[in-house]
Amino acid sequence: MSMLHIVNKSPFERNAMDSCLKHAREGDAILMIEDAAVGAVDGSTIAGDIKAALADKTVYVLGGDLAARGMSEDRIIDGIKVVDYAGFVDLTVENEKTQSWV
């Protein structure tokens, strides 16, 4: 029974991403939307935490939110998958439950 965790806060401003990473379990999915999309970029101070999460979880970023913030897809951490809104809907179907880390 996997959970889709939706995070919408920049990890550089708020602790939602940090808290999500500390509570998400093996096999869960994490989707970064809105300001959280910047967390997908490699080379940042939190990239290590995201890479650690990728060991046993899947991580997604909403492509439109990444592009809107001037970040191209070739800059994101290896292993993070880019989805659109249709992909977002699919993730809520594939995972039995969702939790938003507002």
Binding site: I6, N8, T92, V93, K97, T98, S100, V102
Partner: peptide, 8 residues
């Protein structure tokens, strides 16, 4: 089947 929350 699913509840999805959008907030801040």
């Amino acid at each position: 089947d699913r509840t999805v929350v959008f907030g801040d």
